[in-house]
Design a protein around this nucleic acid. Structure first.
Lengths: 216, 216
DNA sequence: CGTCTGATTGAACTGATTCAACGGATGTGG
DNA sequence: CCACATCCGTTGAATCAGTTCAATCAGACG
């Protein structure tokens, strides 16, 4: 069990993987950095998210993990993790499911950055985050806490923070979102999903045996 | 064991996953399509590549798999696949390794599309493909077969085919690549890696026990 | 208070797109 | 064997989405 302050790294590219991390509280992100400093956030970790099942199979990390807010997280050591895997086939299955979904999300991000306009791209990201937060009961009605800065959004969407700023203004003007003071409101999620062509299939929320998570 | 012609789909988004596919011969790609027709290629499958270990855990496919060339592939049925997994911990480990690398590649693609210029992006893609082909002995010296059209490259990099065309000309002009008649030549791979800031760490070519693949 | 981080604005600029046309190679049917 | 179609690569010119740079503003915090 550990804790890091906002804007600190939990894991750095190039390191030897030590453990599997589970975010208990706070937001984090996975990011990659080019030698000249350009930075791409490739995914966000919300409370409850597993960072890298089985990473220790790999020799070294190919990306870093950074805290957005203060983050509390659990470290599961390789040996313990392997025990988990061998103990219950259901847990093993859940871990595979988790890995497949993570990959699916990554593919959607590639598509998001590769094909959508800035407007669609940001709307899409907000949809994903909101739905994932709702999944873990971290939304209140049509709003939720939202600690990302406009620079974070820029790094995740491959845009500049200046353009993110202008695009957010446009989304606000259209009444599609409210975003101020680390708080996001989406008055009509369907509408936001429509403009961003958001199809939730890639989140695979319909897994058979989802309910097992809590009991097994 | 199956075969499909060039430009046919092996698997379609929305379908229920049936089996795990292994490409034996030919090139294929994973792609996602937006409702308005925009298309993103999110990865390429080269001979020897596993398509989706364990997919049948998921209810439906979130992407399609299409053949670039004529493709011969093997279908492994869920039951057989599960037997494989339980038989040998080494195979299980190899499958996990495979999954982790697939995810790492996907992250790199997100970064590629999000941060690099057209020039860097295409150069990076060519580096990846060449190195992966070399890994399975499908290069001859500094060249290899290369069946992608400029439109394929465009769909994979989030560019238009017109711009891909102009950018390829630039790469040729600089002497970094030769590309004509479905044949790619990279006279100086190091140089191409440099201009695209290619870092091979994400391919994790250094796995411990790699050699086990053939024997276990 | 001064300092810092993050949000906002304006104006000039540019990398990439769009649209439309053309060329060359390959294949096919009459 | 020619006529025609198709696919892919190439080119030009106009346009635009998003960047760049630089300045300003607002709130938070010690």
């Amino acid at each position: 069990m550990r804790e890091v302050g906002a804007r600190r790294d939990l894991v750095r590219e190039g390191e030897k993987p030590r453990a599997v991390n589970v975010v208990l509280d706070g937001w984090a992100c996975r990011y990659k950095q080019l030698p000249d400093g350009r930075r791409q956030v490739v995914s966000f970790f919300l409370p409850g998210d597993l960072c890298d099942a089985n990473v220790f199979i790999l020799r070294e990390m190919d990306h870093s993990i950074g805290a957005i807010t203060k983050v509390r997280y659990a470290e599961i050591m390789p040996a313990d993790f392997e025990d988990l895997m061998t103990q219950s086939p259901r847990i093993t299955q859940a871990l595979w499911w988790h890995e497949l979904v993570t990959a699916a999300v990554q593919r959607e991000w590639t598509t998001n950055v590769g094909q959508r306009s800035a407007y669609e791209r940001i709307a899409h990201l907000l949809c994903e985050l909101f739905i994932r937060l709702r999944q873990v009961q971290l939304t209140e009605g049509e709003s939720c806490d939202f600690p990302l800065t406009q620079t974070d959004i820029a790094d995740a969407t491959g845009l500049t923070s200046v353009h993110v700023n202008r695009t957010l203004q446009e989304l606000r003007r259209e009444g599609l979102i409210g975003l101020a003071g680390k708080r996001l409101t989406i008055p009509d999620l369907r509408a936001l999903m429509n403009v961003s062509m958001f199809n939730a299939n890639y989140l695979h929320l319909d897994r058979e045996g989802r309910h097992l998570d809590a009991n097994d």
